[in-house]
Amino acid sequence: MAQLAMLIDLSRCLGCQACVIACKAGRELLPGERWIEIREVVVGRFPDLRGAFVPHRCFHCAEAACVQVCPTGALYKRDGFTMVDFGRCSGCGYCAEVCPFHVPRIVDGRVSKCATCLDLIQAGQEPWCVQTCPAGALQCGPREEILAEAQARAVALRERYPNAQVYGETQMGGLGVILVLTEPPEVLGLPPRPQPLPITVWKGGIQPLSLGAIFLSALTSGIAFFIARRRHLEEKNGAFARSGKAQASHHPNRKE
């Protein structure tokens, strides 16, 4: 399947949180577990105020730090979304540490974040959140179309919201959730340029190095064992045979 993406138009979101509950219901999440949160942001001084409802949920980064850091492969990418294989999750929580948006949580000993309703999409439906949004603020489709739609909307919104812009085109290699913002991202509590991690130092450097050192030492020892063991027995039996007389000659400082 082509790269997919979701669109969230903040100019339309009324903060009703239908998506939050629909997701909770449709995905049968545990008590206390939610994959979507809606944060209310209002800035300015009375009466010159500006505000928006900002979704706090997995943004499905193309270069997802969580996927890179996940030790077990429980997090992986498919069709532009960051998927979760819950059965594989160890609950280590590394993903929660590295996510630039602080999205993943550990609930009941496993990761908790949007696992994507890809099965619904494949069955010709939409994700639960998209299906129910009364404001129609959410869409899901091929990423190119979604991006084009988002850009068109941002342009159309400039009259009402001079700072209207698209978020997610380039961040973290391109997000799988494209936001149409009514204000600059920093105003809405979104990192304007979230930085991917220098994760290769760890994953590609230290870990293979460590494993390599262990395997190499094991291998060397395994081979050397036969030589050393034979030589040791030679020495021991030799020494035994000579009854220790010759020992002193081996090393000048050696004393009885």
Binding site: P71, T72, G73, A74, G87, R88, C89, S90, G91, C92, G109, R110, Q207, S210, L211
Partner: peptide, 15 residues
């Protein structure tokens, strides 16, 4: 090692 070496990762599943 279950968190470092992929062939062992199944040991980590479930916590």
């Amino acid at each position: 090692l279950a968190l470092i070496w992929p062939p062992l990762s199944f040991l980590a599943a479930g916590g």
